[in-house]
Simulated assay, not measured.
Amino acid sequence: MSNIEWTEQTWNPTTGCDKISPGCDNCYALTMAKRLKGMGQAKYQTDGNPVTSGPGFGIATHADVLTEPLSWKKPRKVFVNSMSDLFHARVPREFLARVFAVMAATPQHTYQILTKRPERAARILTDLCTCGAGHPPGEHLRSQMEWAATSHSPTYVPGLEHGIYHRSGWPLPNVWIGTSIESNDYARRADALRQTPAAVRFISAEPLLGPLPSLDVTGIDWVIYGGESGPGARPLELDWIRDGIAICRAAGAAPFVKQLGSVWASTNGASDRKGGTPGDWPADLRVREYPAAATAGQR
């Protein structure tokens, strides 16, 4: 299970990443990967670039965990890759097809994918036809997903059924796609997200490092706000979140305030060191809404 407030389960078919923007500076997953490598955890023995990544945090795929969701009978919200970015450039397209095949085969679960690389997500999931046959968007990736049920295929995943991927529709109705936007310099990621086929599109403004006056949440269903916690945490100004909630209200997006960060918590004597207890917050920030996923439709 997961301690992350907006999900219930984590699933890491890939591990590792590289820093690409200031929101990555105090990455908890990078620090955790180094510790897990030292403990001998098999998934964290691939080292990344020492400038952008680190020990145990190189990109690695893990075919052995692909079938985990097949054994989860109780429906749950699943955060895909709390220890990686599924749309990192070094995650092979064939492996992405395998991950999406598993998600298609388990419609009882809701999968939440968060990336700092929404441009690649849009490119792969839109997958516009270039073969000249006039295939609809996503058709080539869905074909790779279909082959995941065939033992001699490079996208094979044991235990999957033939045909389920084309019957499930596109985009997959149980898959949410989100991007991280930590400052106004990266508000443009929302533009790529809008081009990404997804049942629900969401933004994680965590750690929120500044105001987001340029952020356009038109076509976005959900926005998560949060401060930074842990060593070297940078401060959060509450008006950044207040402005964000107002932007969400105007556009019809659901706001979710996750936490206010450790700097705010220590300054205000909060009961939780990450500032994650709503009872400690100003009343207007006690907002934890979810998107209307059941009526979001396939867009």
Rank of each mutant, 00 (worst) to 15 (best):
A199E: 07
A199K: 12
A199Y: 01
A199L: 05
A199D: 05
A199I: 03
V200H: 09
V200L: 06
V200F: 08
R201D: 06
R201L: 04
R201V: 08
R201H: 06
F202T: 10
F202W: 15
I203Y: 01
I203G: 03
S204Q: 08
A205L: 05
A205Y: 06
L208F: 10
L208T: 08
P211G: 02
P211T: 10
P211Y: 00
L212D: 02
P213A: 02
P213Y: 00
S214H: 08
S214N: 12
S214P: 00
L215E: 12
D216G: 10
V217P: 03
G219V: 13
G219W: 03
G219M: 02
G219N: 03
G219L: 00
I220E: 07
I220N: 09
D221T: 10
D221I: 14
D221S: 08
W222D: 05
W222C: 09
W222Y: 05
V223Y: 01
I224L: 15
I224E: 07
I224Q: 01
Y225L: 14
Y225H: 14
Y225E: 11
Y225Q: 06
G226Y: 00
G227C: 12
G227H: 10
E228Q: 15
E228Y: 12
E228D: 12
S229Q: 04
S229D: 01
S229M: 06
G230V: 15
G230A: 12
P231F: 10
P231T: 11
P231C: 07
P231L: 12
G232S: 05
G232V: 09
A233D: 06
A233C: 12
A233T: 05
A233I: 10
R234E: 12
P235W: 05
L236K: 14
L236R: 09
L236Y: 12
E237Q: 15
L238V: 10
D239R: 10
W240C: 08
W240T: 11
R242K: 02
R242M: 04
D243F: 01
I245C: 05
I245F: 06
A246M: 00
I247E: 00
I247P: 00
C248P: 12
R249Y: 14
R249P: 08
A250M: 09
A253N: 04
A253R: 07
A253I: 10
A253Q: 08
A254E: 08
A254I: 09
A254T: 11
P255D: 07
P255Q: 06
V257F: 03
V257H: 11
K258T: 12
K258G: 04
K258R: 10
Q259W: 00
L260E: 02
L260K: 14
V263E: 13
V263H: 09
W264F: 13
W264V: 14
A265D: 12
S266M: 02
S266L: 03
T267G: 11
T267P: 00
N268F: 02
N268S: 00
A270I: 07
A270H: 03
S271P: 06
S271F: 00
D272H: 11
R273S: 14
K274I: 06
K274S: 07
G275S: 08
G275L: 09
G276F: 02
T277P: 00
T277F: 09
G279F: 01
G279S: 14
G279I: 04
G279Q: 13
D280K: 03
D280M: 08
